[in-house]
């Protein structure tokens, strides 16, 4: 027995990946990408799909943010806020494995 006993706080240094039992799949019948988890199905927009793909268990949130800022030519602070908020939401729903 060794359950998690405290919630993870997501910041720029966080490295995470989807927990086992959580997966992104193509939902051909409805023409969308869905994130499946226990008793949950979330339809993701393009940005959310990109974030989920970027959570590879190797890159930090900071590294992901840098890459997005370069790709979209958007302000880094704004992207960092959006990415952290989304990743925190996934973490609070116990959908992530936090590696560091």
């Amino acid at each position: 027995m060794n359950g998690e006993t405290s919630a993870a706080r997501i910041d720029g240094a966080t490295i995470a990946k989807l927990a086992r039992g959580v997966r992104l799949r193509d939902d051909a019948v409805r023409g969308q990408q869905v994130l499946l988890a226990p008793e949950r199905a979330m339809a993701l927009d393009e940005i959310a799909v990109k974030i989920v793909h970027a959570l590879d268990g190797a890159r930090s949130i900071d590294a992901i943010t840098d890459a997005f800022a370069a790709e979209f030519g958007a302000p880094r602070d704004q992207i960092a806020g959006d990415v952290i908020a989304f990743v925190q939401e996934l973490s609070d729903r116990r959908m992530l494995e936090i590696l560091s």
Binding site: R30, G31, Q32, V34, E39, R40, A41, M42, A43
Partner: peptide
């Protein structure tokens, strides 16, 4: 309790 999909075709 399955959450409704936000968008469905």
């Amino acid at each position: 309790a399955i959450q409704s999909l936000e968008r469905t075709t």
